[in-house]
Design a protein around this nucleic acid. Structure first.
Lengths: 80, 80
DNA sequence: TCATAATGTTGTATATACACAATAAATTGT
DNA sequence: ACAATTTATTGTGTATATACAACATTATGA
């Protein structure tokens, strides 16, 4: 199973699932399935989502559980 | 459709499809399908392959056609 | 050259990604 | 508090990723 940050990335931008679904051209319920982890995005959809959010793929999807964005940002700052 | 560099990455390392398939835990014929572009890898398999080859996902998969590795390397050098 | 390994092709079966519809529940704004 | 929007749930249908088998073709090495 693949972990993703779609929900945070989406809500951070103040978008509804419908908004995001239209942007990447899938059914709005598909976004719900991904956010709930009911199934994984296809590689193509993953690319489209990462491109839409303007983040590298591995910032939106991962084989391993994510830290929160805040944790990761704090860790990065500490590393400077 | 998603483009990939699996065949080059694999042959550059002198691996057979069977070798690679075992490393990422899929059927060896699945590697053939991907290399021929018969279908796309799942996101999970794409991550496993990129991890196995130790390259970022977008160096192995792309929404748009790839340059050859040699072209890309030459372009990168020219950019220095 | 011959044997073996690697790849290609065709076919069948299964799991999963995605579409779509209907309705229920929860959130949000006024 | 009410209305409107958003999200969740359930169900059905389709396309596609993957497994596996059998056999053909091509490449490789001794």
């Amino acid at each position: 199973m693949i972990y993703n940050r779609i929900k945070i990335l989406r809500t951070e931008r103040g978008l509804s699932r419908k908004d995001l679904a239209e942007a990447v051209d899938v059914n709005f319920q598909t976004i719900g399935y991904l956010e709930r982890g009911d199934y994984n995005a296809s590689l193509e959809l993953a690319f489209k989502l990462a491109e839409f959010f303007e983040v590298p793929i591995d910032m939106a999807f991962s084989l391993r559980p994510f830290k929160t964005l805040a944790e990761e940002l704090a860790a990065n700052r500490a590393a400077q």
